[in-house]
């Protein structure tokens, strides 16, 4: 478990704000169940996300019709609940990507060393 340092807390807060976008992105091409999503996030360097926090976000995405669940047989166990992106979810992801890029560019401009030296 991660120690709750101020830096970790700040990073977690940042990620929580974009976790819905990240979840849509990691299941865009291939549906996944909850834990598998955390693996994919971790593989892309987002292992700082508290795994349990994805479920409420998934719940909201499902309620808003951006993802849809379906059952898929698992190896030896009962069927698992998988999530896939809906057409509405694809549109939302595309929009959020643009918003993120704009926000990131603006923040980069603000935080750029060259800008702060002036």
């Amino acid at each position: 478990m991660h120690r709750m340092t101020p830096a970790y807390e700040r990073t977690s807060q940042l990620l929580r704000g974009v976790l819905d976008v990240c979840l849509l992105a990691v299941i865009l091409d291939e549906p996944a169940y909850g834990y598998e999503m955390t693996r994919r996030l971790s593989a892309r360097g987002l292992d700082v996300v508290g795994e349990g926090s994805i479920y409420p976000v998934l719940g909201r995405l499902e309620r808003d019709g951006l993802v849809e669940p379906f059952q898929q047989p698992s190896d030896g166990g009962p069927p698992r609940k998988y999530y896939r992106v809906t057409p509405r979810g694809r549109s939302a992801l595309e929009r959020w990507r643009q918003e993120w890029n704009q926000t990131r560019s603006a923040i980069d401009a603000v935080l750029s060393p060259r800008e702060t030296e002036r």
Binding site: Y33, E51, G77, K81
Partner: peptide, 13 residues
């Protein structure tokens, strides 16, 4: 349904 989903994910974790 939520308990079953969580149980499967906890087992994997």
């Amino acid at each position: 349904a939520m308990a079953a989903e969580l149980e499967a994910d906890l087992a994997a974790a």
